[in-house]
Write a protein that binds this DNA or RNA. Sequence first.
RNA 1: GCGUCGGUGGCAGAGUGGUCAAUUGCAACUGACUGUAAAUCAGUCGCCCUUCGGGCUACGUAGGUUCGAAUCCUACCCGGCGCACCA
Length: 391
Amino acid sequence: MKAITDEKKIEEILGRGVENIYPSKEELKKVLLSGRVLSIYNGIDPTGPTLHIGHGSTLLKLKEFQDLGHKIILLIGDFTGRIGDPTDKTATRKQLSVKEIKKNLQSYTKQANMILDMKKVQVKFNSKWLSKLSFEQVMEIASEFTLQQMIERDMFERRLKEGQPIHLHEFFYPLMQGYDSVAMNVDMEIGGNDQTFNMLIGRTMMKNRGKEKYVLTTKLLVDPTGKKMGKTEGNMVTLEDSPENMFGKIMSWPDALIPSAFEICTRVSSVEISKINLKNPRDAKMRLAYEIVKTYHGEKKAKEAQESFINTFQKKEIPTEMTEIKYKPGEKLMDTLTRTGLLPSKGTFRRLVAEGGITNLGNNEKIKDVNILAAPGVRLKVGKKTFIKIK
RNA sequence: GCGUCGGUGGCAGAGUGGUCAAUUGCAACUGACUGUAAAUCAGUCGCCCUUCGGGCUACGUAGGUUCGAAUCCUACCCGGCGCACCA
């Protein structure tokens, strides 16, 4: 079986949303044009079962290669994740149980399936080979690199300068990741630009064994000032978000993000993109949100999400669908909301009431009485984006 | 091993006997405003009690001193940095 060798397509794939290609774009292009089927992998850190939009853009890139007919491998870094990072105090070194891994895998697969054809994707776990290495083998691998090569990495260099601790085992992360390439004998790796160092370690290791490994790094979603669209920004879009949530979160992105988001997170053609009027950020962003939601949830859901956004936030209408919670006779509203976990504590409820954050949608009046009883059929707006109905 | 500094709320990081549920920043939440769930401004931000106010639990762990401890003492656990050692 041969891969598709449409030069125009390949050119597009190697350009869009791509930060860098090693050893070079030309080299990779040559191989792709030969029609040889490549095995291409992407590693996922299994710290949480949720993929975000950053993973999504890598998945999009993988999908393009999959469509060309190449073999895609998703590697779950269960071993790497299991070791834990002692510098991260919150990360307790809990060993993921088989059950947890299974559960996470299911959720990963489901999310990745939004983009990739998972039937054709091979899923692998790096514990399979990493946990079997002997100390001797580890030493051999370690001897392939020098301290100087390791501390070349910005992060290490900075911490060294600042007198921050660097744990020895941290040097092994790149090595482990690099060894993944060797163990799977892949032809190529695709990953975010922030993974360049690790991916190149793998390339070196492959080269030491007489094989070239191509590395393609994808652009990260950043605004023009270079600020990373990270979790700290609060509006991290995850692939598990409902279409409505996804749409809303994208609408709250800074306007400056729009052009790069179009390139990285959607596959709207560049001709189309150039037609979009950036002078009107609202409409441009509406389009962006629509396109992204469509990418993951399909056209129908995207339309619905857009309508719901317009109605709820632009026209300030009440959404048709809201969370329903069960009514218990004689119960105070305060207790109903905390019992169902919608609010963390009664203090929070009191605060919200004091701040005018809870509205009875029936008469459109803010609830003022902390001790008000819950009543069946009542519809409430709690905060700015939660709508609930008591049943 | 020696020396030294430290372990505080989701994170960062003040506080060094009562005025501390703990300054400040970030994050989060609410309100106003807005094309937006953005930005900005204002407020909130341990748990429980209906509010003023009160109660409870918290500042690595366990004890102790004191009318009173995040703050002092003792022991222990964990960590940073420097020195010594170094195949």
